[in-house]
Design a protein around this nucleic acid. Sequence first.
DNA 1: AGCACA
Length: 461
Amino acid sequence: MSTSSQPQFRYTQTPSKVLHLRNLPWECAEEELVELCKPFGKIVNTKCNVGANRNQAFVEFADLNQAISMVSYYASSSEPAQIRGKTVYIQYSNRHEIVNNKSPADTPGNVLLVTIEGVEPNEVTIETIHLVFSAFGFVHKIATFEKAAGFQALIQFTDAETASSARNALDGRSIPRYLLPDHVTSCYLRISYSAHTDLNIKFQSHRSRDYTNPYLPVNPTAMEGLMQPVVGPDGKKQEPQSNVLLASIENMQYAVTVDVLHTVFSAFGTVQKIAIFEKNGGTQALIQYPDVTTAAVAKESLEGHCIYDGGYCKLHLSYSRHTDLIVKAYSDKSRDYTISAPSFATQIPGMPAAPNVWHNLQGVPAHHGTDYSASSAIQAQPPAGQIPAWDPNFQARPPYESAPGQTYQASSVPSYVNPATPPGSSPSSQVGASSMSMQQQPWANVRQGGAPEPGQPPHGQ
DNA sequence: AGCACA
């Protein structure tokens, strides 16, 4: 009973001016479909990225004969229909028109609507957006704003061709990680077309730019945005250094006290002041060193590492804009060691000493479900090659595949890892050392060199 | 490699 109800074969299907195409390359662009089909007639509609794999499409010709000519051409051709080298299978659709649900978002224009997922608006500067999208052509204007969909940007190119090349290359991809604050783990771009053709930018500000009119007035209330980290000529983020570090503490399962922070950060030099505060529902701390060099060493060494074994209380460090903290000399959230007895540096009240707490990350399963698979997709297609290699070592670490969270971390943590290198000695010679050794060497080894005994976290509870 | 507003 079932055999007679099986789907029909191609040659028994009734012709339709709508063709069904399958086995397309992933997210095949409409332009590619049109390129393939237009020799046979006028295309009046398309529907792309159909099916679970988004590798099917429909093309509707103006006339039935045009569809027939295409099907019969490839039925007898020795060369199969191909897009990007993949054989495309063509047959008549079982419908006779494409229901047109095309939104303006799918209609190419010179202005892109970009939704930047997974970041706070202040974490992606307009310079970063400009840098990424300039790889495809001259960016005329950028306007950023916050909507329910998240942080969004309108990006105006010269023409729809340039815009679509940017869209095709970047949609679903992530902004390179080194252009983002260290604690941002993923940041995906969702790109559609805007119905705008010309953005009306009133001011140069941290939210909007008109690159065609550099003399546009700067919005005075938006000036602070211009003071954000700048992108240098090499495309690297250039954070202004500071003797004060801003630490964001991720996955804070255990209390992080001033004393714990003091112990951790004292491994790299004298800690002058510490302040702990809450921001955006997370815990942050400012740690003041006497000089920028010490802060830089601490930052490089500790970035991405966890205070406690098991991925707890993971540190993300950046430079603060502050240079001298004004803090209460002694409170549960702050400490000023410059006016306290120096014995504070080694005496930690309420913190029984135990040497066994500075575990490394080895064998710790990934504690985030984050999937970084898209990062390799990026690697395959950086925007027009303007941006240097994402991470040449990324693919070469099979042991890390079961722990993507750490893979990524390791690849982006150029901390010095040689246990023979005490804190304070030149970190630059160790930058870029294999993250393999980092995985095997507990970061606590960094402490070798006479750091005070660490406090006992509530490990194992 | 086999049909789309869900």
